[in-house]
């Protein structure tokens, strides 16, 4: 039997035996509280951003206390990635990809710092401190002024220099599948 027919056979067998299974037999409902705790992603339109706020001055303190040991005093890089500078370098032979030169969305910076940094103790900064350190990194890149205060409404409005720099591949720029058509009312 060829691999494809083995696969097809496997899938057919699966369909024939699984139609009696319902979600009730597997798993349990997630509570609203659980979803709130785990639902940490932040979308470019700001969906997922928490309450709270932070400014550049506070952010400098947060950065010096928690980040500069690895990323350099002004985000110039060290043991870990450079976070500032590099504007205008992307089309040269030595591109420098940083938050300022390359990241298309400021919301992604909040999302990433909240989920992954500081590297040794991720998800330990308060939401206020996360807004603050994001404001500081954006200020290091001359994207927000020194008196900027970021919160859930101002952060998604920050326009990143490389906002239009990423071009989705045609294969995955518009996603369609046969389930969409099944769901459509006649």
């Amino acid at each position: 039997m060829s691999f494809n027919s083995t696969l097809a056979f496997g899938i057919a067998a699966l369909l024939c035996c699984s139609d009696s299974a319902t979600a009730a037999e597997f798993g349990r409902p997630a509570t609203a509280e659980e979803i709130k705790a785990w639902n940490i992603d932040v979308a470019p339109d700001g969906t997922g951003l928490p309450d709270g706020q932070g400014d550049v001055a506070r952010g400098r303190q947060v950065f010096e206390d928690n980040c500069s040991a690895c990323h350099g005093a002004k985000g110039e890089g060290g043991f870990a990635d450079r976070l500032a500078g590099g504007r205008g370098s992307l089309a040269t032979d030595h591109p420098v990809k940083t938050v300022g030169s390359f990241w298309p969305y400021a919301t992604t910076l909040f999302d990433y710092v909240r989920r992954a940094m500081p590297y040794p103790a991720p998800q330990t900064l308060s939401d206020d401190d996360t807004y603050a350190v994001v404001a500081y990194i954006l200020n290091l890149n001359d994207i927000v002024p020194a008196d900027a205060v970021l919160d859930r409404s101002s952060l998604p409005r920050v326009k990143m220099p490389n906002r239009d720099g990423l071009v989705p591949d045609r294969e995955f720029s518009v996603i369609t599948n046969s389930r969409q058509h099944q769901g459509r009312k006649p």
Binding site: L90, W103, P104, P168, D169
Partner: peptide, 23 residues
């Protein structure tokens, strides 16, 4: 638009644009 599909795993082309979702 996570960090791993914007800042990383996007492919910078010679003109400075980057291919995204080249999966």
């Amino acid at each position: 638009m996570t960090r791993w599909e914007t800042a990383r795993y996007t492919q910078l082309q010679a003109d400075g644009h980057a291919r995204q979702f080249q999966l």
